[in-house]
Design a protein around this nucleic acid. Sequence first.
RNA 1: GGUCCUGUAGCUCAGUCGGUAGAGCACAGCACUGAAAAUGCUGGUGUCGGCAGUUCGAUUCUGCCUGGGACCA
Length: 301
Amino acid sequence: MMKKVLVIAGPTAAGKSEFAVEMAKKLDGIIISGDSIQVYRGFDIGSGKITKDEMQGVDHELIDILGPRDHYSAADFQKMARAIIAQTDQFPIICGGTGLYLKACLYDYDFPEENHEETVDPAWEQMDNDALYALLLQKDPVQAEKIHPHNRRRVLRALTILAHQGQTMSSLEAAQSHEPVYDIWIAGCTMDREKLYARINARVEKMFAMGLEQEVKDLLQSGSTFCDQAMQGIGYREFEPYIKGECTLDEVKTQIQTHSRQFAKRQYTWLRHQLPVHWFDITDPKEKQKMVEEIIDWSRS
RNA sequence: GGUCCUGUAGCUCAGUCGGUAGAGCACAGCACUGAAAAUGCUGGUGUCGGCAGUUCGAUUCUGCCUGGGACCA
């Protein structure tokens, strides 16, 4: 019998963290953060990290587990989240908006062991997009078909897998079942697009009031650079031109708001098409209550 | 008050020697199997300030009106 895993998904600023805590209290749950930035210590304000108070005594995992300059990936999340699910006696609740992470953990994704230090073939670095794509087309036409020639990162990834694993990416994927490995319920927090965008803008405003600028300066002071993975997150990378004296603080804020809205839009696209999400309007008390009841029914079934 | 410049997409601006228009960003849609808050793809969304004149035809030329800017008084 498959273990049950509750997933709280949805776009940024929809109120996932709060809802997850609410459900954890009802189900005696443990919350596993499915967020790619909140794993980093020191990235608090800009990542919208939940505070100790807001946790209300509920256990939260995979928050503050890495240093500011460490590397993190979907495979790391998959491994750690699955380990927590396997070991805990509490009800596992994954809360996060990073679609790939959620799917990699919940479904039969199989990431072969790989060393992060392994870089791409230097010869490839010299090649232009078309030449690289032609190479992939030759070595793994099935995978090439799925990637746009201009998407250099994905083309390189497919080539690197082949070189390191001796198998094509398409064959690795074909060997998977494409079925969930747990008994899952995915609750999708949503609301009117306009309302969400207004919340995002207000949230960014609040981040600045809470001292986001100082947080970024402190991180830079202690050795972080804008090249670091964590610093590439929305709410951080926009500070680079400001630090260099190339734009105003107000422009940074506007950029963060814009990027956050665009991110939310992409999250919707991903979740709508990639996972079986039970959507509900979190701002509608009736819909929310109904969702809570459905989750509880499912948890007992 | 006078002279000159200016008004084109949500924003910043190209452009049409007269045949109703296009870039960047924004916005919308989409893809996604180890950076995913990443990366890439697709889409023009418009009374070309208003009214009249010339013309087969005006966003383009002319006149007037109107909004904005600069300079001179």
